[in-house]
Design a protein around this nucleic acid. Sequence first.
RNA 1: GGAAAGAUGGCAGAGUGGUCUAAUGCGGCGGUCUUGAAAACCGUUGGAGGUCAAACUUCCGGGGGUUCGAAUCCCUCUCUUUCCGCCA
Length: 424
Amino acid sequence: MLTIKNIITNKQEVLDRLAIRNIDATEKVNKIIALDDEKRKTQKDLDDLKSEQNTLAKEIGMLIKNKQNEEAEAAKEQTNVLKEKTKLLTDAYNNLESEINAILLTIPNTPHDSVPRGKGAEDNFKIREGGEIPTFDFTPIPHWELAKKYDIIDFELGVKLTGAGFPLYKAKGAQLQRALINFFLDEGDKAGYIEMMPPIVVNEESGYGTGQLPDKEGQMYHCQIDNFYLIPTAEVPVTNIYRDVILNEEDFPIKNMAYTPCFRREAGSYGKDVKGLNRLHQFDKVEIVQIQHPDKSYQTLDEMVAHVEGLVKKLNLPYRIMKLCGGDMGFTSATTYDFEVYSAAQGRWLEVSSVSNFEEFQSNRLKLRYKSKETKKTQLAHTLNGSALALPRIVAALLENNQTPRGILVPECLHKFLNFKIID
RNA sequence: GGAAAGAUGGCAGAGUGGUCUAAUGCGGCGGUCUUGAAAACCGUUGGAGGUCAAACUUCCGGGGGUUCGAAUCCCUCUCUUUCCGCCA
């Protein structure tokens, strides 16, 4: 969430930035500023009261020590009044605080200056594209049919075992998954990311830390007995490593990555979006996460985009990089680039990665800070993450784009992880 | 799953109702000495809020309670360790 300090000191800028999302937050911001002012005054009064009580308590201690019991009793009487007042003020203070927080939670991150205005996906700005859309001298088959034809992914068996959206990968299909994961992790390793194998079940605090809770509660699978959540992305455990951490400037940049399965309930999705591998309840993903000094986070964002671009290039997939407009950006992001690959038989662009700079929005909730060498104070760090990459849609595009009458050709970058070069 | 012990500052570790704004040690930072370094010695040493700065408030696993006063007593939750049981 946004910091109150930022809202107060840069009020107009905050409002202007939020306008990029087509949000007029004037009312909320004014309310927060007013409430915060009141909170501050209340705190001052409360502090004074407590100070008075502390002094009195010490005096009573002295009086009792000196056996001046009558005076001590009289002093005790005094504290009763103070206690009453303290209770009232404490309640008022707590109310103000939760009121402020409640509003704060409803305000999304302020988009970066460079983020284009716009309403939805149609207003996203294409940064670059690459690769070539394949042409066929036959009608290309969609991946779910290819999967069946070569018996590499069994959607029906997944339904039997669990339900829709939980496919079972078989034989070369399963091996292809493994190869992709290895490829992504190896590339990440070359780029300096430290590999992690985190828990894929997290507690409530972690859910709040990265902002999945409370807003997206219904999107996560919940183990009620233990109050744990299945992670919707490795971002949750890998970023929460730094919850309540104060870093040194020398620690930057922190570069971590993790392969994990991801679980999403995807309530409300339907139609062609959920066909085949397009949208699943369980899928595999390698996530890259960086924590960076605020001055360098945008440089880092570019670096991460370049990394992901390298992956889709090596996989030889037609891709485009979209800079999301204000209206299409996620709640917590300040800048997001989406990667889409073209899936030739479906004839659609599929989102396979989303690379974002959250600036200090996540850090604020995580209490992820660093000690500034210059000011000697603790300041919020910037967090960034991106998929590098999510498997299912990559697989969908690979199957559809690389199909030939003989079988499906496996891209060269995966050969060293596999003992076959064609799925037939 | 059963039993017991425990959770204190970056780490180790004292403190069991009243200058605890937490001893001591280690580590860190600054200084003296030195050509430089080490050693020795001296000083300093966290987070949050607040203030021009201070004062002040708050934080001894989380929450609640008792008390004029809680790291210290009570309740509760969480976690850790050890032992037993079960087990990949």
